[in-house]
Design a protein around this nucleic acid. Sequence first.
RNA 1: GGAGAGAUGGCUGAGUGGUCGAAAGCGCUCCCCUGCUAAGGGAGUAUCUGCCUAAAAGUGGAUCGAGGGUUCGAAUCCCUCUCUCUCCGCCA
Length: 410
Amino acid sequence: MIDTGLLKGDLESLKSKLKFRHSSVDLDYLSELVSKRSNLTRESEELKNKRNEISKKIGIARSTNQKADELLMKAASFAKEISSMEHNLSEINSEYKQLIDQIPNICDEDVPLGEDESSNVVVKMWGDELIKKDGKSHDELLKTNYLDSERAAKISGARFAVLRNRAATLERELANFMIREHISKGYEEISIPFLVKEKAMFNSGQLPKFKEDAYSFDAFYLIPTGEVSLVNLYSNEILDEKMLSKKLVCYSPCFRKESGSYGKDTKGLIRLHQFSKVELVKIVKPEESDNELDSLVADAESILQKLKLPYRVVLKCRGDTGFTASKTFDLEVWMPSQNKFREISSCSNTRDFQSRRSSIKFRRGKKNEYAHLLNGSGLAVGRTIAAIVENYQITNDKDFDDIIDLIKKI
RNA sequence: GGAGAGAUGGCUGAGUGGUCGAAAGCGCUCCCCUGCUAAGGGAGUAUCUGCCUAAAAGUGGAUCGAGGGUUCGAAUCCCUCUCUCUCCGCCA
């Protein structure tokens, strides 16, 4: 959530900051609600103060065997007034909370203006000389000895994949390689729960906005990304300043309904209901988060570089930046069959947006401050397989063995 | 799945209707003392939030797993939920 103090300040400036952010919250209304709320809160606290004083006197009178009838009557009248005020207040509070939860993060000043991906800015190209055009698609190259979509459909339906033989091995080795690389850069490997509480989904910003894209049953949600569990690892904690920066890496399956993407990427490994991903999360001090974002991107990039896959780095514009992020760089890998770059990692600074929601703080001197949280994929494993297969046009066991050997040696 | 016990500050743990945000101990911070070390003495030590302040100080409200209820007053009584532990059963 955003700093609620902003709602008491310059409303027009807040509005302009949220331009392009697809927020439907009526800030004028909300700001009225905020002042109504604080007035009512103040009044009720004053009343409570009076009541508490009388109650204390009653207690003292009782313990010294004095009569307190008059005090009791006075206190009772306060109690009535307080309870009706509290009733009003709780209605205002729930509306307030509901609206606040829908406000997206404010983007950094240097994030480009713009409504959608057409305003995104390419900030870096890597491996131009490696780009090959018009290759066969990974789907074509792999079916059905390595990618058995038909049998996957038999088991689970559309948008599921069964990897076989060397492709299955490659998936496991790739994940292993990615984790190894990140550990060597100081990340702590975490093995996380894949089923999480609703609260955990809320804390990391998946709820309430993206409810329709998440699978759930009983009281659980299936994680759409390992970020959910990693972000919640330290929720409701006040960390020792010395513990920061905290760098975490996990490997997990991710589950998404992909409800808004019928007809897109229906073949292959690009858009599945279940895919595996290596995820990076950092918990850092506020003054470090800008630099930490750069190094997070570099950490994800290094995987692509070591695999010699051509890619570009894209700075997303305000309209295309996710709900929780203040700034996002996407890594897009070259896909020869589409002659296009496709997203393979998304690295974001959320500043204090997630840490406010999940209450992750650190102690600095005598004061507690919200930490800054960053997250990024490092990388999506399925898409990495697709990119490797297409860029190297892999078709047989020998090709697979070569690349698997290479990965093991890096 | 069955039976039982429990959830209090950084930790252990006392507290069953009233000067209780909470005894005591441990830990931690600062100070004193002793040549160093060990030991000892003193002070401080939860979170969120309102007002006030340049800031500190000060002062209100809320928080004893979560939410609701009873009451002038709830850590304490009642209800619902969540979680943890122990035993039995089942099981990778």
